[in-house]
């Protein structure tokens, strides 16, 4: 087990109202090299869990352990190792890259601050190699990101996260803001990287079809609680909880025959 999240709870202040509890007793594990999907509707707490896993916020209760490190209280060398080995990719391909940095600076920043390459030339070579790997042209290294499309920016974000060889990549809705024809490129890239680098991916998404495609383990969340978790086949083949069933039934299918049959069946069920 690479990372374990043990019954964490989190509230936000909502003064003058009592604090709003957004996570209730959430427990889940991430194993080496596996892709795990956190799915749920807005307000399910899936992004909050991602932030806790990245130590961007701290839960009030529970424990998060990464490879022997107590994440919530980590300091010094432990925290530095955690920061190197757990990385992320955000939803917004526009806001998630510093507009004042060149592609080389963005991708090379991790190498620089973790002192993974001794010289600027060696860093540059690693950046070029990484750009090649994610399907970018290394000749674009000195450009700023504003002239790049959303899909290319997401590739830059992925390269930036992966160049320091993390063991976990947390992705919060990484394709939600992309054009349909570009989403598949990024999904394939993530899948490819996961296999090549034996990377664990935590994939936070509202799009269940994408999660089914990418993740072998799925955690279903509703109002800050884990409703159900299991393998892809368990969740998509035979969901046990009514909430999961209703969620899956509502996903539209891009096939008129199947899609309409599904809707008709579901409406018949709700009518009864």
């Amino acid at each position: 087990m690479l990372m374990s999240i043990d019954s964490i709870s989190k509230s936000y202040n909502a003064f003058p109202n009592p604090p709003a509890k957004v996570l209730h007793d959430v427990t889940l594990n991430v194993d080496t090299g596996e892709a795990i999907g956190l799915v749920g509707e807005s307000g399910s707490g899936k992004s909050t869990i991602a932030k806790c896993m990245l130590a961007l916020i701290k839960p009030e209760e529970g424990r998060i352990t990464y490879d022997g490190i107590d994440v919530i209280h980590a300091k010094g060398d432990d925290l530095r190792r955690f920061r190197r080995e757990v990385q992320m990719v955000f939803q917004d391909p526009y806001g998630s890259l510093n507009p004042r940095m060149t592609v080389e600076e963005l991708i090379g920043e991790g190498l620089l601050i973790h002192k993974l390459e001794p010289t600027a030339a060696a860093r540059r070579a690693r950046v070029a190699e990484m750009m090649e790997m994610v399907g970018l042209n290394p000749n674009d290294m000195d450009r700023y990101t504003r002239s790049f499309s959303g899909g290319q920016r997401q590739r830059i974000a992925i390269a930036r996260a992966l160049v320091i060889r993390p063991r976990i990549l947390v992705c919060d809705e990484p394709v939600a803001a992309l054009d349909v024809s570009v989403q598949a490129q990024v999904i394939n890239l993530l899948q490819d990287m996961q296999k090549k680098l034996n990377l664990a991916i935590v994939f936070v998404a509202h799009d269940l079809a994408v999660v089914r495609h990418l993740c072998e383990k799925i955690v279903v969340l509703h109002k800050g609680k884990v409703v159900e978790q299991g393998s892809r086949d368990e969740i998509f083949g035979a969901p046990k909880m009514p909430y999961t069933q209703s969620l899956l039934a509502a996903v539209p299918v891009p096939d008129p025959v199947v899609g309409r049959a599904r809707r008709a069946a579901r409406r018949l069920e709700t009518a009864n």
């Binding site: 598949a184 490129q185 999904i187 899948q191 269940l208 089914r212 495609h213």
Partner: peptide, 17 residues
């Protein structure tokens, strides 16, 4: 487009933007 009712190994991706 990935589908909720099917397993695929890789998605077809239109290159470019």
């Amino acid at each position: 487009v990935p589908r909720i009712d099917q397993d695929l190994n890789t998605l077809y991706a239109i290159p470019g933007a």
